[in-house]
């Protein structure tokens, strides 16, 4: 009798990272992939199933009731500053709650949740190595982070409530590449703003490395919270220099007001609070994932930056149009 194939469910599969993960999983011989996302999945491999439903709907539960799911990759977290606060909260928190409940009710042995390294937040007094047990201060000046912190902590509560499920919470550094997140968009700007007199240390993680880290964390026996760090930290201006684009020096007293105006006028996609990321460091300690799973990043900062710039020219625009108004960043 043929061996039963591993069944993997990927939420947020139509996002850039979801697509990369689905393609990688589908290349593995004994894995079947089901993606969940409201948005269309462009250039979908034919044997990847795509359910265009909202995780919060009942139709989603039918999937778990009728099929034996082995692993859930929960990538479907929304981090679009243009969406309303309540939409954020219900989508992220109720969606995660739903996923974790399915896992518990239908005996899914493994859940990998892609949280974010932004939960720690940039602060002038951050240590150079932020460990997994550091307090999640990311929302103290950036209210838009509250729901993501709530999701992270909610997922953590499953470690002790349901120890039979191997829950993994990943907190990656800034993922850079074809993804449409704040950092990659920042690097794609024509002229890149930096704050006069500030040059914090930053870490970037190539999108392919993010995917391989997610896969490493999905291995049996791995559980807990892990920071995911790619190449070594480098000064922000050095990173910006790698794009070869001109910078724009702005006094930090001026920029928040300006940014708020631009955001409201829809001339910029960065909420003013995100400016703290180009002002203060938030560099993570990635040692834990590397020792536990032996995962190592394969891409350099240069490669990540090039991937981001390439995507800006080619497929990014098309995908964005297709995704329409509800663009989930990861």
């Amino acid at each position: 009798m043929a061996k039963r194939k591993t069944l993997a469910v990927v939420t947020g599969v139509s996002g850039r990272l979801g697509q990369l993960l689905a393609r990688r999983l589908h290349r593995e011989p004994d894995t079947r992939v089901i993606g969940i996302d409201r948005r269309p999945f462009l250039r979908k491999p034919s044997d990847v199933e795509h359910l265009r439903i909202d995780i919060r709907r009942k139709a989603c539960e039918d999937l778990f009731r009728t099929r034996r799911v082995d692993v859930i990759y929960h990538l479907g977290l929304m981090h679009d500053p243009r969406q309303g606060v309540s939409e954020h909260y219900t989508w992220n928190l109720l969606g995660t709650k739903q996923i974790l409940e399915f896992a518990q009710r239908y005996d899914v042995p493994k859940v990998v949740i892609l949280s974010t390294g932004d939960v720690y937040g940039p602060q002038s007094d951050n240590p150079a190595y932020i460990g997994e047990d550091a307090p999640l201060l990311g929302a103290q000046r950036f209210a838009g982070m509250r729901d993501l912190i709530a999701v992270d902590m909610f997922a953590q509560s499953y470690f002790w409530k349901f120890p039979e499920i191997e829950t993994v919470v990943l907190r990656p550094a800034h993922i850079v590449g074809g993804v449409r997140n704040a950092v990659s968009n920042y690097l794609r700007l024509q002229q890149i703003p930096v704050l006069l007199g500030f040059d914090p240390m930053v870490q970037v993680l190539h999108e392919e490395d993010a995917v391989s880290a997610i896969l490493a964390a999905a291995r049996p026996g791995v559980r807990g919270v892990f920071n995911v760090v790619g190449a070594d930290a480098l000064p922000l201006r050095t990173l910006v220099g790698l794009t070869g684009k001109p910078t724009w020096e702005v006094p930090h007293l001026l920029l928040p007001g300006l940014a708020r105006q631009l955001f409201q006028l829809r001339l910029a996609d960065f909420p003013a609070a995100e400016l703290d990321y180009i002002r203060y460091s938030a560099t993570l300690d990635g040692a834990r994932l590397r020792t536990v799973t032996r995962w190592t990043p394969q891409y350099s900062v240069e490669e990540a930056v090039q991937a981001a710039l390439r995507a800006g020219i080619f497929d990014g625009g098309v995908e964005r149009m297709a995704a329409g108004a509800s663009h989930v960043v990861r």
Binding site: M201, A233, P235, V301
Partner: peptide, 12 residues
């Protein structure tokens, strides 16, 4: 130092 000339604390 890493490949970009600073250590993880930013010393160049």
């Amino acid at each position: 130092q890493g490949p970009h000339g600073t250590d993880s604390f930013g010393f160049a």
